[in-house]
């Protein structure tokens, strides 16, 4: 790894990381503050709005029925579409910069004209993005802690169970990040890479939703990455979802590696 590339990458992504991190912090504060206070009424709301119930089932991966316990409420805080959108948007923004962003804006000529291998650039860039992802998730967790402290009633869930959810969320982001690196390596235009990853994420989201009431979608729901992020299970049972974590880590690594191989073999043409 190269310290010059690490510093350059950190310099480029600290602002979006901070912005998305603060966005997640505020979202989690709000959710941790509001959700426990509506615990009693939540079951009624769910039974009134069937679409909301379906959406909730899709996001949680299980039907919580009318009885909403503290674990289910906290799980909602971790599968909230705003939270997922912020995590994914951050990942897409930082992981499509290299190489398509560099090629798109023409800086690839300077970067790849230096005596450093493409893989080294890719690896150094990835390291910083992995750290940035951890920072964003940590800020989200901090938000849930702050929200719990200032709320009249809190979730009262064990920290170790929340940690499992955070790891799961981090790997979900890593999987999207790996795909973003792959799309970026395949493209000369960052906009195209962003569009492709966004399409994959959206398709995964829709598949997850459709699978709740449409059997053909249910049959292929394993293809969607959201299928491997079910915070309610570790929050209820305290068990590590090893299979889900391995699948997400596998998607992240394989797509990242494919991106690396493509980058090493491809032409860099800024003009």
């Amino acid at each position: 790894m190269n310290s010059g590339v690490i510093i350059k990458t950190a310099r480029e992504i600290w602002v979006p990381t901070l912005m998305f991190g603060i966005g997640l912090l505020l979202s989690e504060i709000l959710l941790a503050f509001v959700l426990p206070s509506v615990e009693k009424d939540f079951g009624g709301i769910i039974s009134q709005f069937k679409l909301f119930q379906t959406l909730l089932k899709a996001l949680l991966g299980t039907d919580i029925g009318d009885k909403v316990g503290p674990e289910a409420l906290q799980a909602i805080a971790w599968v909230d579409p705003v939270v997922l959108a912020l995590v994914w948007a951050h990942v897409i923004v930082v992981c499509t910069r290299m190489p398509s962003g560099e090629i798109d804006r023409g800086t690839a000529d300077v970067l790849f004209g230096l005596p450093i291998s493409r893989f080294n650039v890719y690896l150094s860039d990835t390291l910083v993005c992995l750290i940035a992802g951890a920072v964003v998730i940590a800020l989200a967790w901090l938000g849930s802690v702050i929200g719990g402290l200032i709320a009249p009633t809190s979730f009262q869930t064990s920290a170790s169970r929340v940690f499992i959810v955070l790891v799961n969320l981090y790997l979900l982001g890593a999987a999207v990040g790996g795909l973003a690196y792959l799309m970026s390596a395949l493209s000369d235009r960052r906009g195209r890479a962003i569009g492709a990853v966004f399409a994959i994420v959206l398709a995964s989201f829709l598949l997850n939703f459709l699978a709740q009431f449409w059997p053909p979608a249910e049959n292929v729901s394993f293809l969607g990455i959201l299928n491997y992020y079910r915070p309610i299970n570790p929050l209820r049972e305290g068990l590590w979802p090893v299979r889900d974590l391995l699948v997400l880590a596998g998607v992240a690594f394989v797509s990242w590696l494919a991106g690396a191989i493509i980058l090493i073999r491809r032409d860099i043409a800024t003009t």
């Binding site: 350059k8 800086t107 000529d109 300077v110 004209g113 450093i116």
Partner: peptide
Amino acid sequence: RADVGYLPGDLRLYPWLTGSEALRLVSRV
């Protein structure tokens, strides 16, 4: 490339860099 100094035809540099920062960055690489 360790023994080459290269100036691209259509030079684009990182807009957030100052000249000194660019030199420090290239020094590190």
